[in-house]
Design a protein around this nucleic acid. Structure first.
Lengths: 186, 186
DNA sequence: CAGAATATCTAGCGGCGCTAGAATCGGTGG
DNA sequence: CCACCGATTCTAGCGCCGCTAGATATTCTG
């Protein structure tokens, strides 16, 4: 059965190659430059090979997004460890969005079939959201709604800055105000 | 010169026809369904006619967005009139986003060359933002940054709800929390 | 080593945004 | 009234897209 194992391993390697190449290309030229033809050329296989791994372009982006959910969840959990957890978690979120813009775009901006806040929500995404809830601290009246609002604010800041709709300059100040407004001293 | 006037009037009418048709089609089937071919067929002209009015598809969407800026600015100004201005303005913003999703998408989600917070920012958009600043009330420490943060929160709520990433159910509660957190009693 | 099964490729479909050049229309001067 | 000419509009096509059917090549098996 070693032959099958080797085949599976090679297939898994090619799967990784596709994802990494798609991510690199997207990072360099944006998702609209990630076409099945260019991607196939870069991995040095023909187009249909992509379709033996993924249902289509959207599926490739969804796979990239899934990894992003895990990375984000990890980042938020680490940030939640120290003191001033709320501000740190918010900073970690914005940091992730700023440092991996195309991954963030695949996760939260581009159309998705992914259902949020449902049974099919990926574990990692749920974990990331739970980190937000936890960062708000105990004794909240509406912890989930408040966390959704906090997420909205973070997401809005991320995408409006990314698209140049609000200036990058004020990021620190806005983060300070956000952390202050959402702090638990009310 | 009456003939030229008639021609200009007819051209203006066709311009309107294109914009209205694009908006209707986008509202019915989304922006990705608004192709130059379908649009041309709907207005009963050939494709190149579109290009005699607009530089391209993106330009058509930008024109739709521009009208949206005006409508939003008007809506926010009206909401700012009464009492509880902050909550009312926020509600008006979310209302606009929810009731005209494709216009909102063209304004704030889809790629744009439009520069925000610069000299080229459309007057209407600037007016809408100023309404947010005003709604925060006087005696703020960082009124612009705070307004940018408020806008971020509103935008985040709008798009995350629109894409189903946060449930539509909690909209009212989240709006309440938002208005409370940003109220000037600190 | 022949044949079956698997893996991969070539070639193509319909549709996209956009445009060059042909055809047609409408106003104008003889 | 008509022939011309410029403006307007259309036909046809380019190179690209996501995706797939069917041919081909490769690999494993008896």
């Amino acid at each position: 059965m070693s032959i099958m194992e080797r085949k599976e391993r090679q297939r898994a390697e090619r799967y990784e190659l596709i994802l990494n190449t798609a991510l690199e290309l997207a990072a360099a030229e944006g998702w609209e430059a990630v076409t099945t033809r260019r991607l196939a050329a870069l991995i040095e296989y023909s187009q249909p090979v992509l379709y033996s791994h993924f249902k289509g372009k959207a599926d490739i982006m969804a796979a990239v997004a899934m990894r992003g959910f895990e990375e984000l969840a990890t980042g938020l959990k680490i940030a939640a460890g120290g003191s001033a957890a709320l501000r740190a978690v918010c900073a970690a979120y914005l940091d992730f969005a700023a440092s991996r813009p195309v991954v963030y775009e695949a996760m939260f901006v581009l159309p998705t079939q992914l259902l949020f806040a449902s049974e099919e929500t990926p574990t990692a995404l749920r974990a990331a959201f739970d980190a937000l809830v936890a960062a708000l601290g105990p004794d909240r009246e509406d912890p989930v709604f408040t966390a959704e609002l906090l997420w909205s604010a973070l997401h809005g800041m991320a995408v409006l800055m990314q698209s140049g709709r609000i200036p990058a300059d004020g990021a620190e100040v806005r983060l300070d105000i956000l952390a202050r407004e959402f702090s638990n001293r009310h």
